[in-house]
Design a protein around this nucleic acid. Structure first.
Lengths: 317, 317
DNA sequence: TCTTGACGTGGAACGCGTTCCACACTTTAA
DNA sequence: TTAAAGTGTGGAACGCGTTCCACGTCAAGA
């Protein structure tokens, strides 16, 4: 049962049926009623895929997510959804594991019109490759693209990072461990972190107290296990409150005094444990990213991160 | 540039081009090479929407989610994705807020072929309404449907709930507060909780220590605020570790002794705070649900929940 | 009375890939 | 040698809704 059947049965053309279905003008009262009756009697509903094909638009937005098994990107996704839903868009989850091949596959799906736009919450492939695919649809990234002409929504991390390190300095911590989610050379975040360190201390971070690929509670736990003996860090600057919580857990489990911690993302674990954190307002970033995706605007929008001080000691002792 | 253009340019028919694109037999080496060259030269990619229309299949699975702003359904979604990805399916996020109209809209999209299957992680509309829509596509729910003939993946909560209440009884707690996510009459989970209570204590739960619509840390906090004076509960049975953490926070903030807590879902907050919990294995449930959705099997699969005992006192004192 | 212009409706092409069927030619088995 | 089976290819219909364009009617303004 399709629109042409309805047309035949009702004695009108498919054009008129289409007008009725889409509630458009230039249909007589009688025709509208006749057609609606047939639609009702035969329990007809139009086919969304045919409509999408015809309109050249799917109202789907692909969202590329490096991880599916931890809450890192949850805030971003929620923000995107909160903007997509009222605008009549749906989001399609695209797990990537930072795998360039998979990411490429998703980009090609954009070419193939599987979705109208694609948001990379993070990406493994180069910005130049992304630039090439802009001609096929709206592409939005979630970090600062610098001079490149690509749509982006992100947080300015510089100031909050510097504020955090200044606080660390003011407290006279000597052995500062930094846990990163991705290696320095491929991660803008890592670079920003180091820059803030340099600006504050005028020196490079201690390489012996560094760990990369730390993204979960468990990773934090394991990183602490590795690092606790190297110069005995007295503070950990981490990529997430959950990670900081993992570090803490290691020390507790081993009856060692828990060092100071700094988290990020203002997660529940940080709230519970009174860990100072940096709120990147990812919900807001997601909203902005989605807006750019929907309107196909190639511009950059950003928000400021906030360093949230909390007195961790309140709970540890 | 479409498949017919490629056909014309290469001098073959669109049937043959289609065979080449889909890597099928019955194409001569020469034809394959000629056509591939044209495809390459003109940088052609097929249109996914047209293909979906033609095949009558989208490889999309809709996932209806009551909430988008808290991590309740995260595990389920992750489980679904982990099964969908290797099978070549993508998931479309459908936020519902338990709104029957919105849920209906999503069901109708199933009729309209917008996705091949739909998974309700939870739902506000009646099972009977869902049953009616089964004719239009694969529908999977995530709770026990009893005798009804509908695909379902869920956890058996009975035993773990009973185990939890037995433990409560063994510890001689007198004032038991129960925090529910949805009202008794509409929530099977609430009913199971009460049943376990009755089985254990032989009586009804104290209505004065009951609260519904508690799903987040903040909700837990507020519920504790309301309930702490009614008979002073000495234990809270909650719907999630995060909620239990919210209860705890209220007591801490007000310098009151923290009562015992029982959480659910084995969330990070529970791990950190040593709150006993009930692991419903939602990741596994999600996987199972997705399998049913993909294979369009109308059957029921379930796993057992586990009560995980932890000695909360370790941390509170 | 003539001209606009709004209103109502249908035809047909368009968006684009897939697939059934027919037909021709080439092997292979009998 | 002949029938059967396999290979290669094209035509056209199919999946299905949208939209441009043409055409006719009728009322309002000139």
């Amino acid at each position: 049962m399709n629109i042409h059947d309805i047309a035949k049965i009702s004695g009108y053309s498919s054009s008129t049926v289409s007008r009725v279905i889409n509630n458009r003008n230039y249909v007589s009262k009688k025709a509208r009623q006749d057609i609606q009756k047939v639609i009702h009697d035969f329990d007809y509903v139009p086919n969304d895929v045919a409509r999408d094909l015809s309109k050249g638009k799917t109202h789907n937005i692909g969202v590329v997510l490096p991880h599916t098994d931890h809450p890192y990107y949850t805030q971003l996704v929620e923000g995107i959804m909160s903007a997509a839903f009222p605008a009549g868009y749906r989001i399609v989850m695209l797990p990537s594991k930072f795998n360039a091949e998979i990411e490429m596959d998703y980009l090609n799906r954009l070419r193939r019109k599987a979705y109208d736009a694609i948001i990379f919450t993070s990406h493994g492939i180069s910005l130049n490759e992304l630039l090439e695919y802009q001609q096929y649809g709206s592409i939005v990234i979630c970090h600062n693209p610098g001079e490149l002409n690509i749509a982006a929504a992100y947080t300015h991390r510089e100031e909050s990072y510097t504020e955090a390190f200044k606080w660390i300095k003011s407290q006279n911590y000597q052995h500062i461990s930094i846990l990163l989610s991705r290696a320095y050379k491929i991660s803008a975040t890592a670079q920003k972190t180091f820059q803030a360190y340099r600006n504050t201390f005028g020196s490079e971070p201690d390489k012996n107290l560094l760990n990369t690929d730390v993204t979960t509670f468990k990773d934090g736990y394991n990183a602490a296990m590795k690092l606790c003996h190297n110069n005995q860090p007295d503070i950990y600057f981490t990529n997430g409150d959950d990670i900081a919580a993992g570090v803490r857990q290691f020390y507790l489990d081993n009856n060692l005094p828990v060092p100071r911690l700094i988290g990020q993302e203002d997660q529940l674990s940080g709230k519970i444990l009174n860990i100072p954190t940096i709120n990147h307002h990812f919900h807001e970033v997601g909203k902005l990213a989605c807006g750019l995706a929907i309107n196909n605007e190639i511009k950059q929008l950003s928000v400021e991160s906030d360093f949230i001080f909390r007195n961790q000691k309140n709970i540890e002792n």
